[in-house]
Design a binder for these strands. Sequence first.
RNA 1: GUGGCCGUAGCUCAGAUGGUUAGAGCGCCAGGUUGUGGCCCUGGAGGUCGGGGGUUCGAGUCCCCUCGGUCACCCCA
Length: 449
Amino acid sequence: MVTPRTMPGVLELLPAEQVTFRRMLETIRAAYERFGFVELETPAIELAEVLLTKTGGETEREVYFVQSTGAREQGLEPDLALRFDLTVPLARYVAQHEQQLAFPFRRYQIQRVYRGESPQRGRFREFYQCDIDVIGRDDLDLRYDAEMPAVIHRVFTDLEIGPFTIRLNNRRLMRGLLSSLGVGDPSHQSAVLREVDKLEKRGLDATATALVDVGMAPAAVDRLLETVSYRSSSLDDALETLDRLSAEFGDAAGGAADQATVLEAIAAFGVPEDAYALDLSIARGLDYYTGTVYETVLDDHPGIGSVCSGGRYDDLAGYYTSSKLPGVGISIGLTRLFYQLREAGIVGASPAVTQVLVTLMDPAGFAYALEVGRRLRQAGIPTETRPAPSRLGKQLKYADRLGIRFAVICGEDERSRDTVTVRDLRHGNQDEVPRSDLVRHLRTLIDQE
RNA sequence: GUGGCCGUAGCUCAGAUGGUUAGAGCGCCAGGUUGUGGCCCUGGAGGUCGGGGGUUCGAGUCCCCUCGGUCACCCCA
């Protein structure tokens, strides 16, 4: 025999948890659609040539290549690969279908992606990403950057998993700031920003050491860390700080003005002030972000880390088209989010979707039980019926395990009176009601919750 | 890719200095109750002690190799 198991790094759920997962997914989808994003699906498998243009050597290590058995037998190199995110397929899609799309193109995409990394707690090789992006043609107004926090706010409010903070920063602002501090070379700036991004995790001292290691002058390191340790306490506070940064660091003025525009627009979108903050230590490792960057954390569970992140990029599809397609987007890693919430005991099993089990104890009751089942389904109540008789205790136990709330019992006694017994397994009580009254009776019980 | 930690039942773990037939809790199955789930009681199934080699009269325990898992770094959702 072969031990039944999955490879590490995949998440497989039991039915009661799958319901919870699906509910979260539908919550996210509903919020995305409420903001006017349209759904997009792309294939899990892309041509390797298309998928790997944009990536450097780092990501390529994590890509799963795909090859048919036939091709492998012929000794051919794999020419297909599994997508490792949804942004690259989006770029390909927009470039490919540019003429048929209306811009700004607002799409959401909720699908699984694949990364061949060594698995760790909360890191998966197969996971769901829930993305939204707005893609402009030639240009895209800065205020679109403010719509992302508005959507995130909607999503995380609807998910009901506690208070959260959307942290924002701006890479243009940061590059200007670094330039004023004598770090002018873009790749040097990137190296510095990568270290700054780890400030919260590693602390001031370790970060200072790391910054000196990447070639920053100690005096500049002190000033940078002092500046970057800032997190706004309110919108006005953030705007004042941006003004001060413009005055203090001349090269940062442009980025600071951008960020102020975005913050003011977020307020105009109606996002409450306690749900977002300017945080100058958020840098994001990815270099393709050029302006606003986002990270969202759950206030009561900082250990979970960022549950949603994204940013603004100047040109989405430069590898596929000469059209300039700037965009802004965010992504929720739902698999990791669900896993972490479950570990923290914030989410768990949901009650069964099935509401009623119609039991069957004797073969003579078969037709009667099926008629009762039909009646319930007609009324839109998800109902399981038993095609074969068995002991009532077993059937109640079965319903209990599945989390089915009601058992409808129609044995000989009930049939002789044209009634059914409705047992509420959650509360442990039961009533005998006329068969014609069953649906109304159940509705009353369900509505009482 | 680099480094640390850990492998005993489906799960969580106990098995001091090597010593008879490897245990517990939870879970699972059956019965107690042929029309009443959870709680309780009784019984049962389930293990090549990750794998291979070695030392020994004797290895879950000691040694070597190997495989797997896991955590940190890196990177990210």
